[in-house]
Amino acid sequence: MSATPEEIAIRPFTFEFPEAELKDLRARIEAARWPEKETVTDQSQGPQLETMKELARYWASEYDWRKVEAKLKALPHFITEIDGLDIHFVHVRSKHENALPIIVTHGWPGSIIEQLKIIEPLTNPTAHGGSASDAFHVIIPSMPGYGFSGKPTTTGWGPERIARAWGELMKRLGYTKYVAQGGDWGAIVTDLMGAQEPEGLVGIHTNMPKVIPAAIDAALIAGNPLPAGLSLSDEEKRATEQLDFVYRHVYYAYMMASRPQTLTGLVDSPVGLAAFLLDHDKASLALISRSFAGQTEGLTRDDVLDNITLFWLTNTAISAARLYAENKTSFFGINGVTLPVAVSVFPDELYQAPKSWAEQAYPNLVHYNRLSKGGHFAAWEQPELLVEEIRAGLRSLR
């Protein structure tokens, strides 16, 4: 049965969170029951008690959700049903002629909050160090189960299906030529879009490239030694070591992939939710923890709590986690993308993709650059650097 015009219509979307919900959130934070202090002096056991107590104190007594809510409400929000599910997205058109449409996808534990800082520089480049020829029309969807998008009620909404849905979304918006960008899950979805080649997609930019040779990826996932006879450069050896560390320490991913419903406590305890969302990777945890110790390089306390609070208010901890259970593809393995690809490598990413691997994985590599600072959540942490990378990396595709 084909979709009806009403189902495929693009509809304006609004949201409202009553003060009673924020009051309940603060009460739950203040009533938190705390564990004893960790038995180590570092973060090897997860977010430290001192960090979590300061987060909770600030969240309950000083943090103001209405500030970011006002920023969100100032943007044009829409919703449309794709493949039986409501998909929410922000759509900001540039005032500049010949702007290039770009669909940008967030990751976990993220949301459209991740991309708020890059919207204005991408759509209005002349006010942010660029030229009119750098302009983009920006589309930022909420992934299924995240933020304001619908929550799947059946299995099947893995990254391949999301990638196809994004192609359908861009078609509905009338864009006949566009590019895609993403990090974390957004990088995986974007890479799959590149492999699927929906009509109109002319290239992608990724800040978490999927370039690991298949034999190396398979060995690392299984925890096995690398195949005999491999000849690796120093850069490739370093990347392999980083990936081995990642696969041995992404316990949150294994939990969500195998038993997402067991995490039900995350929708009952805001402090428990915050601790779980903070502990994505070693570098990101250190960055976030510093923000609650008075250092604001990269992220502020409000940045962190804006995202966590959106998870809480939309009750999406479990629905977002199920994406891991739906995934059937490698996080970093090659998808066979032949469209033009731009790659940006941030030093605190989960691994620094070697140029040699990028050239093998992406035969049409149009841009490769290693940045001096920044980590896994580039749009959130280092928006100026990422914006410049998007501009430079995709300039040849206009």
Rank of each mutant, 00 (worst) to 15 (best):
I102E: 02
F17A: 12
K67F: 04
W65K: 00
A56P: 09
T51A: 09
Q45P: 09
A70E: 11
R28E: 12
H106Q: 09
Q43L: 10
A31H: 06
T39M: 12
P47D: 05
V104E: 01
G84N: 03
P76N: 10
A74R: 04
S61I: 06
S94K: 07
E50L: 13
R57V: 13
L100R: 12
Q45Y: 13
D64A: 08
T105V: 13
S44L: 11
K53C: 10
E38I: 06
N98F: 06
V68E: 01
A20Y: 08
R26L: 03
K95S: 14
D83F: 01
K37D: 12
E81C: 11
D24M: 14
T105N: 09
A74G: 14
A32D: 07
E97T: 13
P12F: 03
K23G: 09
E62V: 08
P101D: 07
A32I: 07
K23S: 15
T105H: 03
I82F: 00
P101G: 07
D86L: 08
P47A: 08
R57L: 14
G46D: 06
A74E: 11
A27V: 12
F78M: 06
P109V: 06
A56N: 09
P18N: 10
R28L: 14
A32C: 06
I82D: 01
D86M: 10
D24G: 12
R26K: 14
H91T: 04
D24H: 12
A70C: 07
K37V: 12
R57T: 15
P109R: 00
Y63P: 01
Q45N: 14
P12A: 07
E30S: 13
I10A: 03
D24E: 15
H96S: 12
A74C: 09
F17H: 11
R57S: 15
K53S: 11
W108Y: 11
L55K: 09
A56I: 12
D86E: 14
I87E: 01
D64K: 05
A32H: 08
I29N: 02
F78R: 06
A74L: 04
L25V: 10
W59D: 04
A99H: 04
H106W: 03
A60W: 05
A70L: 05
L22G: 11
L72G: 01
A20M: 06
H106K: 08
G46A: 08
I103Y: 01
S111C: 04
D42G: 07
A74K: 04
L85R: 02
A99N: 11
A70T: 05
W59M: 05
F78G: 03
I112W: 00
L25E: 03
R93T: 10
E81I: 10
E21P: 05
R26M: 06
